[in-house]
Design a protein around this nucleic acid. Structure first.
Lengths: 139, 139
DNA sequence: TGTAACATTAACGTTAATGTTATATTTATA
DNA sequence: TATAAATATAACATTAACGTTAATGTTACA
């Protein structure tokens, strides 16, 4: 499995090295492997995660904290699934899952609302564009 | 024309008074009228503008500076239109309009890209939700 | 008309998200 | 193997977007 140093990752993602270390510091990405002497060694997977973070940040306008919750939902689920069967406290596990599901529904709703508003903005912008064209063609 | 004081506006919009003054300070909204003694007096129109600012901020995840450009495009156009006919420098006016049109197209493209990515996120979230349901129904 | 509830400006404080600089190691290359 | 280039930690700096506080003036009403 190929490994990358922080500068490679920076070039690949467009983030600065400082930012990458910061994202690690606040727990937005998991600490990567280290060489014997301490150099960070990233995998493709780590880079994918970072790209997801960037996409979400840009697209959703989330704060990094919100992002963190958002991005770990999936992993939380998978963890739950693993120990769901052999859990002694099924009741509680079930409750937790229900809460997570509610959170996911909330996120979906939010996305839908945002998309709706974006459509309205787009409409306005299109009208604006047509208006400009009209003026220009007036001669 | 009815006038509102800053606290009314704050309650109506959900912003704090500090924030409203700040938005004025950075030029995101135009300075409202003042009473003889200096009290800010807002019109319905001012409030509408603020609500637009809020919507755009929440939905588009723009910085306030980006917002400013975005929101003034329309007004810029109308100003142009007014003095387009009786302009002596039609050439230049036309050039300016073309640049604005390009800016608008850029914004539209950006919106479309964002919406596309949001759709992807939504899809993922829906899958996640289904997965949780499946686990819960496993018993 | 007093006083409580608001308004104003001004200045300093705070938090998130980095940028910058310094100092010390590590790694790559001539 | 020397030295240049990259990495690491740490600490201080900066910017946006407000919050908070202080000092002072204004408006509403009992």
């Amino acid at each position: 499995m190929k490994q990358f140093k922080i500068d490679d990752v920076a070039k690949e993602t467009g983030l600065t090295k400082r930012t990458i270390r910061y994202y690690e510091e606040i727990g937005l990405i998991k600490p990567p492997e280290r060489s014997e002497k301490g150099t960070r060694l990233y995998t493709e997977e780590d880079i994918e995660r970072l790209k997801k973070v960037i996409a979400a940040r840009e697209v959703l306008g989330f704060s990094l904290q919100e992002l963190q919750q958002f991005l770990t939902l999936k992993e939380t689920i998978e963890a739950h699934h693993r120990d769901y069967r052999n859990a002694t406290d099924k009741e509680q596990k079930q409750q937790e899952l229900k809460e997570i599901a509610a959170g996911v529904r909330e996120q979906i709703d939010m996305l839908e609302q945002k998309m709706k508003k974006m459509l309205e903005w787009k409409k306005e912008l299109k009208q604006l564009h047509e208006k400009i064209q009209a003026i220009l063609e007036e001669q």
